[in-house]
Computed example of a mutant assay.
Amino acid sequence: MAETEKQAGASPEDDGPLLPASFTFTVPRKEISMVSDMGKWKRSQAYADYIGFILTLNEGVKGKKLTCDYPVSETVEKLMSLLGTLDRWIDETPPVDQPSRFGNKAYRTWYSKLEQEAETLVSAVLPEELGAAAPEVALYLKEAVGNSTRIDYGTGHEAAFAAFLCCLCKVGALRVEDQLAIIFKVFDRYLRVMRKLQKTYRMEPAGSQGVWGLDDFQFLPFIWGSSQLIGPEELPPSLTLVPTLLQKNKYRHVIRVLVWYRFS
Rank of each mutant, 00 (worst) to 15 (best):
I183S: 09
D188R: 14
F219H: 11
D14M: 11
V61L: 11
Y111V: 02
P236V: 10
K142C: 08
A173Q: 01
D91F: 12
G131K: 14
V137M: 05
F53D: 03
K248C: 11
R101M: 11
P71D: 09
Y107N: 00
A48L: 13
Q228L: 10
V137L: 11
E5M: 14
K250C: 10
R262E: 08
G9S: 09
G213Y: 06
G213V: 08
L121Q: 09
A144T: 04
T56K: 14
R29S: 15
V186Q: 04
D14Q: 14
S148E: 12
L165C: 07
T109D: 04
A159K: 00
L229W: 02
I54T: 09
K78A: 12
P95F: 01
D178S: 11
K113S: 03
V171Q: 05
Q198H: 12
D37F: 07
L191F: 10
K78W: 04
K113M: 08
E31C: 09
K250A: 14
K185W: 10
E117N: 15
G213E: 08
Y201Q: 00
L220K: 00
M38S: 06
L82I: 01
E233H: 12
L220C: 10
C68D: 15
A118Y: 01
K185T: 14
K62G: 02
M34I: 09
K62Y: 02
R101T: 13
D37C: 07
V176E: 13
M1D: 03
L79H: 02
E115I: 08
V61W: 01
S81I: 15
V125C: 08
K105M: 05
A181G: 06
G154I: 07
K105I: 02
Q98L: 04
N104Y: 00
P28V: 03
P95V: 01
L246F: 01
Q209N: 15
I182T: 15
V257L: 12
A21M: 11
Q198K: 08
E233D: 14
H157V: 02
T4F: 09
L235W: 11
G63K: 05
C167S: 12
K185M: 15
L239M: 15
L18Y: 06
E117S: 14
V211G: 05
Y153D: 01
P28Y: 01
L168Q: 04
W41V: 10
E128Q: 13
R150H: 08
L180I: 12
L220R: 03
K6Y: 11
P94M: 09
L79V: 05
A134T: 05
G52P: 00
R202D: 07
V72S: 03
I51R: 13
L168A: 06
A162Y: 07
S227N: 08
E5V: 09
C68W: 04
G213K: 07
I32H: 02
